[in-house]
Write a protein that binds this DNA or RNA. Sequence first.
DNA 1: TGATTTTTGTATCGACCGCTAGGAAATGCG
DNA 2: CGCATTTCCTAGCGGTCGATACAAAAATCA
Lengths: 220, 220
Amino acid sequence: MSSARYKICSMVTKESKQRGRPRSFDRATALEKAILAFWENGYEATSVADLTRVMGIGAPSLYSAFGDKQSLFEEVVREYGVRYGSFTDRALEEEPTARAAVERILREAAVEYTDPAHPHGCLVIHAATNCTSREVEESLRARRNAWITVFESRIRTDIAAGELPADTDAPALARHTGVIIQGMSQQARDGATRQELEAVADLAMAIWPRPARTDAPHHA
Amino acid sequence: MSSARYKICSMVTKESKQRGRPRSFDRATALEKAILAFWENGYEATSVADLTRVMGIGAPSLYSAFGDKQSLFEEVVREYGVRYGSFTDRALEEEPTARAAVERILREAAVEYTDPAHPHGCLVIHAATNCTSREVEESLRARRNAWITVFESRIRTDIAAGELPADTDAPALARHTGVIIQGMSQQARDGATRQELEAVADLAMAIWPRPARTDAPHHA
DNA sequence: TGATTTTTGTATCGACCGCTAGGAAATGCG
DNA sequence: CGCATTTCCTAGCGGTCGATACAAAAATCA
């Protein structure tokens, strides 16, 4: 409690000199190790003993620096989103149409979810299924459902702009996108290769309707 | 050990009269309760104490009748396949084409996965993710991957019969089907309704190629 | 240097995990 | 009725879970 308050204070005021014994480990590095552990094995199957081992610190150091296991996991999820899950946000921001954004998301997911440099699949999709802690399970569920909502609103924008036919079923198309992403993630965990998932992504994009108007600026 | 051997003997020889104290619970009913518990919470998150509570029996009775937790789970998975997962096999047997079979599977999955009479989603897909026991995790993974193989061979059969174009990408189409099923299952767990999943199923079927020949008997 | 502050390692804590020993209870057999 | 057999209930096993008390260690401040 008090240590956390001090930490926030030091972060805000940017004191370069602390009073007591300096920390013997790099917090960001330890957090990254925790990300990989939770990503690989999920929230419950990763014990505090597992965490202290892979993070290279003792249990008291872990609790002092990150709070309890659940708050560490919450920070892991946030940092995972920044380091590994931001490709969806980037695609939605940078691509001109919902279709182009989803196509890019699916193709990048095929690469990300099978990257040998880290555990396969998506942490948000898999790390808190079958969880004794309903709170943790629900927090990731909320993130997944938020995806669907974002997809749907992006599709609606394109419908309004004439980029998609007026009779496009936005909720169904958005949910279909979520289904593909989550299914691809599990397939990646089950051993599917990048090429296999890319083929699925290509197939899945075939359901997207053609643009309603031919003068759309991005389809010259 | 010895009790298990006796049990097999009695099952084989169909002795109607046992020597000792009769069992005070119905084994099939207790197994059904275990199915629901594992289905709802997964393998690891369902403790033996949870099982004894919902099955209404003591721990020694559980171990005597079903062996240890893992062997109970294996029996649960088998029985689940018979009672709740056989709609895929039926569709593959009864429908004349791969396309018709998959369409039926997806539509029935939308109903099954959201049935309020039991936990949502598919036990095989969710009950052993993030599992400390690699053996249990791997056994369900093998079942999931077996689906893909079955789909692929069924699609190849249709290609050979001219029911699907010769250039149909059977592996991709099979994997896409698996992705849809597994994604639908997670969406069901995340709260998607039957109607929403049916809309996704309809959308997903749009990628299937038209038959290569027009004299196919089932497309009159 | 001595006082203060923070982190560190050790050594646990109570709770729960899967699992089982041991004896009482309930049946068929003689 | 004994007697053998099987199941049931109580209690508890060793182990691991998440989390912490405590004091030595390592830094700054006066």
